[in-house]
Design a protein around this nucleic acid. Structure first.
Lengths: 111, 111
DNA sequence: GCAAATGCATAATATTCTTATGTATATTGC
DNA sequence: GCAATATACATAAGAATATTATGCATTTGC
């Protein structure tokens, strides 16, 4: 099952920031592959969604970038800024509480 | 804490359908109040979000409506159609699996 | 050598929400 | 009695964020 896109809406920034927190330094394509792998293909981040999101995170000062060349091919690494490190903590605890709330509201049984 | 709106994105239809499943027959304003109450004000559905959603659910054949007058004031009741009953089951199991996936992906500890 | 994978990016479009606005009736507090 | 609040519907402009499509270029695997 691939999750319907509307479910993933609003969680993309959190997912990206979390990956950067967990792995230190990542480039865009790597993030999509890691998430795909970790979720057994259930969450596939499209490039059209990812890159604008990364640019927005950078504009907000939550991530910083370094560009490297691998041969002739460019690779843009992203990592959390101090502001980003604070932000991901906030996002995670908000998400945890949101999920508890939804579990109650939707009367979800543990699966 | 009121959840940031982006978190709630994509979950509104599920919330509405679930309330109708749980309570049989409800009108719009009632849904907003019930959800506000059940979540201790953490989720507040705005009218600008709710009514278009209800209309969309009706257009998709997931809910049916009956209009009543309470005094001179109109009240539009919504209830699940058979199609809606199937749909909410699907939505709930998808949501449950999504939440498990997110819990793992974001490495969330039980709170 | 050619297809698939890697790697970046943007643009048009769709969806779905916020915020603002509109209309009207009913109830509550003073 | 009357003003403020609550009830109850609805739509519209705008913002945010995703999808889908497209573009370009390099590298790897067979």
């Amino acid at each position: 099952m691939i999750f319907s896109s509307e479910l993933i809406k609003g969680t993309l920034k959190t997912i990206v920031l979390k990956q950067l927190e967990a792995n230190g330094r990542m480039y865009g394509y790597e993030i999509t592959q890691r998430v795909k792998e970790l979720t057994f293909d259930k969450i596939q981040i499209t490039e059209g969604a990812l890159y604008p999101t990364l640019h927005a995170l950078e504009a907000d000062g939550l991530v910083v970038t370094e560009t490297e060349y691998i041969g002739k091919r460019i690779r843009k690494y992203y990592s959390l800024s101090p502001k980003g490190k604070t932000k991901i903590e906030e996002k995670l605890s908000e998400m945890a509480e949101f999920m508890e709330t939804m579990k109650f509201l939707l009367d979800l049984k543990p699966i």
